[in-house]
Design a protein around this nucleic acid. Structure first.
Lengths: 248, 248
DNA sequence: CGAAATCTTGAGTATAATCAAAAACGGTGG
DNA sequence: CCACCGTTTTTGATTATACTCAAGATTTCG
């Protein structure tokens, strides 16, 4: 685990600025946020269920996932974390973690001590409020996932997940020309959707055949966003994006 | 909608006291909490997806559920709300509701203006913190539901849900001698579990045959809690109950 | 270039959905 | 108290979606 201090750029700042314009003071406080930055290889646990962490992790780049294991060893991914996300923010208020967080691709991760987070929330209430907002939006995403896994099947279920990922990636400028990098394996999609890997493969093939997606390695292209949205019954309201981002 | 002021008893107080002992001042503030109390018949919407409410609803008695509808009209229940729960607390910070809340049985509901909630959070920070804690626990419950619906099948899936309900009901003293009143129809269980009503019926029969549950009308009895827990792979960590409640 | 991981294909099976209808239950009014 | 209505639960038969197992092809990466 290679560690250094102060990253080149902090995607958290961009994310918060999409909600409200930061004052110079607030921006400076976020830029100076003391955090330990580490580069983690793919498929490494960052924190584990049962841990009682004294810090939270900010994803600076790469893909991570939040997951739980059943007693019989089956894995359920309950959300994907991308740049700007703090997938274990709740550990600030709930002592014991009820989920694990793992990298999917190589990730730059910033570890921020809880006391530092508490301090910045106290000193800059708007930032504190933004963190809470994020936590509530996370909950809204989990609700949507319950519905997706519970009610949609095959193409529709996967389409919905892809729509969510694309919208969230677009919000942090990781989509260009309907193309994004999605280093998620079919097995990982399976664990997120409650499908078997074989079934994911067959659903993907059907989606390609129907012109809903095009893939080339880890690149994903959406030739017809409206069609994908319709097939996935995707309504981005639950992501609670402000203003213009939700569109298109 | 019959309305009056000040309920006989406020289950919110009991719930908060299970987390930390309230000061007299805090308890008084909660007892004097201005809210409009209404008695709603079963299967009535309290709030709807898309609403922009200026108040939140506290369930004083009865069963309610939080649900979403797919574009094709299928309903997913994403959580059940019991006495002491505020199923739309997030509307305090997220303007647009992404879920609907509906009664399951007859409910006494207290509507509390957002400004009142904001005021009490500002004046009694520990109460504010407790509300946030509740919101984070809700999110943990949604995560567990994703796993339950995604990874468990048949008996195991339903057993897990029953375990959660019993533990939560016990926390507000609604379980006596392993018996509780559960006015949830098989169709509602189906909407919560991602099953068809017919399948729920068959799973229930299997559970009765295996001695996991006994039912009589809306009364549910758990003859062997440990067995039910094991079949449902139930680990109450995610409910983040304090102290003694999680046991047994 | 070779090994490991990932993706793909095929065949057989299982869990759960759908459809349809009958039985049981719960509340209401006569 | 009983007859009646709507709702909920139950049953049977058929179908569909998705799983499992197993093997082969392809890609990725050192």
């Amino acid at each position: 685990m290679h560690a250094s201090f102060h990253p080149d750029y902090n995607p958290l700042i961009r994310k918060l600025e999409s909600v409200f314009p930061l004052t110079d003071e607030e921006r400076q406080a976020l830029e100076d946020l003391p955090m330990q930055v580490a580069v983690l290889k793919d498929h490494q646990d960052i924190v584990r269920e049962g841990d009682r962490p004294s810090r939270s992790c900010l994803i600076l780049s790469g893909f991570a996932c939040v997951y739980k294991m059943t007693a019989h060893g089956k894995r359920q991914i309950v959300s994907f974390a991308i740049a700007g996300d703090i997938p274990d923010l709740q550990s600030l208020h709930l002592k014991v973690l009820d989920t694990s967080v793992s990298t999917i691709s190589t990730c730059r991760v910033g570890f921020i001590q809880h006391e530092v987070l508490r301090d910045i929330c106290a000193r800059y209430p708007r930032i504190g409020a933004a963190f809470w907002r994020e936590a509530l939006i996370d909950a809204a995403i989990f609700r949507e996932w319950v519905m997706n896994v519970g009610q949609r099947e095959g193409v529709s279920r996967l389409a919905h997940l892809l729509c969510e990922l694309v919208v969230r990636l677009r919000a942090v400028d990781l989509v260009e020309d309907h193309v994004c990098d999605l280093p998620i394996t079919q097995t990982e999609f399976a664990d997120a959707l409650g499908f078997s890997p074989v079934h994911v493969n067959r659903v993907l093939q059907q989606m390609r055949a129907e012109g809903l997606i095009e893939t080339k390695g880890t690149r994903l292209r959406i030739p017809d966003w409206d069609k994908l949205k319709e097939v996935g019954e995707f309504d981005p309201t639950y992501l609670h994006l402000e203003s213009n981002q939700a569109a298109a």
